[in-house]
């Protein structure tokens, strides 16, 4: 295996495109090294992107935040402005692994590892986040939900990689929240998860919402019926029940060692309700 640490995006793209064997990106490495250890992947080339300009920083841009692909979970948790604007995204990213893993793991890595249970992905999708894709040609911006293709697979083409993720500007009375269910209190993979991002009008009525679900389908689910169930409401109990039902209906999970189909469908609705309540309160809504 070759290890390269290019200094420019163009050089990284050239290395990745030129490699005839298996090429992989290294950012935080918390998934990559596990896969290498287990023999799941044996890269011929590993391109460390942490020296590329902008990959280690969080920068304000157009009122929003551009977060480099090498920014760790711990760095996210230390950015007070980001936490205030996107608490759900930050709490989702901070749920990945342990304190130690937080020292290294990145949201872009979480996305590109393409696990259906990735914690930050539903939160990013609910937030309407976009990633910047680099490659041989010009870069392009792509909605987060367009990246995963299935468990372990992305829609990125050979030679392409993500350099940053962008979270848009926030207005007043907006908030997000993310919840996952795990059997322990820490150190587990989500059995089911839900992210809710909403904005309220002056009267506390939900104006707009995005609800995204994790670990209940091959890829993250952007659940429009769930959003519709709460838009125009003050998140009364009836709206919450409709939200939960919509999430459970949209869930197409599998039975595995972490949970059954039935359990995941039940719990994803419970989590969506609870996340919606948190987001609503954070946005200043009062019931």
């Amino acid at each position: 295996m070759r290890y390269e640490k290019p200094q420019t995006v163009a050089e990284a793209a050239r290395l990745l495109s030129a490699e005839k064997g298996v090429a992989r990106i290294l950012a935080g490495g918390t998934d990559m090294l596990v896969q290498m250890k287990s023999g799941m992947v044996e890269p011929d080339l590993l391109v460390d992107i942490k020296a590329l300009p902008g990959t280690r920083t969080i920068v304000k841009e157009a009122g929003g935040f551009r977060i480099g692909a090498g920014v760790s979970g711990a760095q996210l948790s230390e950015d007070a402005d980001l936490k205030a604007a996107w608490p759900g995204v930050v709490e989702a990213a901070n749920l990945i692994g342990s304190t130690q893993v937080q020292g290294r793991c990145t949201m872009v890595g979480n996305l590109c590892n393409a696990s259906p249970a990735a914690d930050s992905v539903p939160a990013l999708v609910a937030a309407g986040a976009k990633v910047r894709v680099a490659g041989r040609g010009a870069g392009r911006d792509v909605a987060v939900e367009e990246i995963p293709a299935g468990p372990g697979k992305t829609k990125l083409k050979k030679g392409e990689f993500i350099t940053s993720v962008f979270l848009p500007a926030r207005g007043a009375r907006c908030a997000d929240a993310y919840l996952r269910f795990i059997p322990r209190t820490e150190m587990d993979i989500a059995v089911a998860s839900a992210a809710v991002n909403l904005s309220l009008d002056e009267k506390g009525v939900i104006k707009d919402a995005r609800v995204a679900l994790g670990a209940v389908a091959p890829t993250v689910v952007l659940c429009e019926p769930a959003a519709k169930a709460i838009i125009g409401t003050r998140l009364d109990d009836a709206a919450l029940e409709k939200l939960a039902a919509a999430c459970s209906a949209a869930a197409k999970p599998i039975d595995d060692k972490r949970g059954s189909v039935e359990y995941r469908k039940d719990v994803v609705g419970v989590l969506a309700k609870r996340a919606a309540r948190i987001a609503y309160t954070r946005a200043g809504g009062q019931k």
Binding site: P183, R184, T185, E186, M187, D188, I189, K257, R258
Partner: peptide
């Protein structure tokens, strides 16, 4: 240790 879940400190 990911899916054989021994108690962690916060449990």
């Amino acid at each position: 240790f990911l899916d054989y879940r021994i108690p962690v400190a916060s449990d």
